[in-house]
C-alpha cells in the first residue's frame, strides 16, 4: 500500500508477469557444447527438426528451414539425430 519503505523494490502484486514469452530474452545458447550446422543443399525442408526441437530454436520462414536460433539452441542434437536417414543435412560441430 505505502511505498516509502527503504530498500524496497517495485514488484507487481502477486508476481504477475505481463510480458508474454519474455524468456525469449533469456539466452540459453551458452549451455551448448555442440552446435548444429545445416547443409542447405541437402535439406529437403521436411521440418522434422523444427517440430522435434525442444528449444523452439529451428527457424522456419515461409515453410523453409533457414537455420538455427543460437541464442536458445542448447545443442541437444535431436535435430541432427532426427533428420531423416536419406537426408542427414544437419551435423553437430564442436563449439569453437
Amino acid at each position: 500500500m505505502k511505498k516509502e519503505k527503504e530498500g524496497e523494490r517495485d514488484v507487481p502484486p502477486g508476481g504477475v508477469i505481463r510480458e508474454a514469452g519474455s524468456a525469449h530474452g533469456y539466452s540459453t545458447g551458452g549451455w551448448r557444447k555442440l552446435r548444429p550446422v545445416v547443409d542447405s543443399e541437402k535439406c529437403t525442408n521436411c521440418l522434422i527438426c523444427w517440430v522435434m526441437c525442444p528449444d523452439s530454436a529451428v527457424v522456419v520462414k515461409d515453410g523453409k528451414m533457414i537455420g538455427f536460433d543460437l541464442e536458445h539452441c542448447k545443442g541437444c542434437g535431436i535435430c541432427a539425430a532426427e533428420c531423416p536417414d536419406k537426408v542427414k543435412a544437419i551435423k553437430m560441430e564442436e563449439e569453437g
Partner: peptide
C-alpha cells in the same frame, strides 16, 4: 493480453514480493 501467474521466484525477488504483500 496473456499473463503468467505463479511464476518461480528466486533469492533475488521472493522477499520483495513478500514485502509488498
Amino acid at each position: 493480453n496473456p499473463i503468467t501467474m505463479g511464476a518461480m521466484t528466486l533469492q533475488d525477488v521472493y522477499m520483495d514480493f513478500k514485502h509488498e504483500q
